[in-house]
């Protein structure tokens, strides 16, 4: 993120300290994570201690302090997905990508994450790959999804 981009975001929120959460959301939307340099600059510009910014950034699930991979794989672990086998799907992905939820593969290709519920319980268990919903997942289907199997129906949401 350039200094000008950050300045635009801060300006949009009127340099209000109370808008910190919204500012962080905008930074994350642009960079896909919260770079330390940006947070430091933000701390300077808003005259807010860096610790307070980190307090927010680490409290809320929506933020990441490390760069994410090219592709984001999100496993819904809501209750409906859980009783329909989300844990198996997550285990399969952890094994295949060799990462834990919240981590990125060493080739920076995939980031694996979980979400508490996406409100698409009729499609449980659900996996989201780069914003595309893939419902009624099973272990083998999720593997073919990763391999970019074109036959797998992908639905934009």
């Amino acid at each position: 993120m350039t200094g000008a981009q950050l300045e635009n975001i801060l300006k949009k929120h009127d340099y209000q300290k109370s808008s910190l959460l919204a500012i962080l959301q905008d930074v994350q939307a642009l960079d896909n994570y919260l770079p330390r340099k940006t947070l430091e600059a933000m701390s300077q510009r808003l005259q807010v201690p860096l610790t307070q910014i980190y307090y927010l950034a680490t409290f809320y699930r929506a933020f990441s302090l490390t760069p994410r991979g090219d592709h984001l794989v999100t496993v819904c672990t809501g209750t409906a997905c859980h009783v329909k086998g989300a844990a198996t799907i997550l285990n399969t992905l952890e094994r295949e990508l060799a990462v834990q939820p919240g981590e990125t593969t060493s080739d920076k290709k995939y980031t694996l994450e979980t979400v508490n519920c996406l409100g698409s319980c009729a499609l449980a268990p659900l996996v989201v790959l780069d914003g595309h919903y893939h419902g009624r997942m099973v272990g083998t289907k999720v593997l073919s999804l990763l391999k970019g199997d074109k036959k797998d129906a992908s639905k934009k949401s």
Binding site: L118, G119, S120, A122, Y133, G135, K155, K156, S157
Partner: peptide, 11 residues
């Protein structure tokens, strides 16, 4: 809605 979208309503 979100449920139908997930099932392909956008297409």
């Amino acid at each position: 809605g979100t449920g139908c979208r997930g099932a392909g309503a956008s297409e």
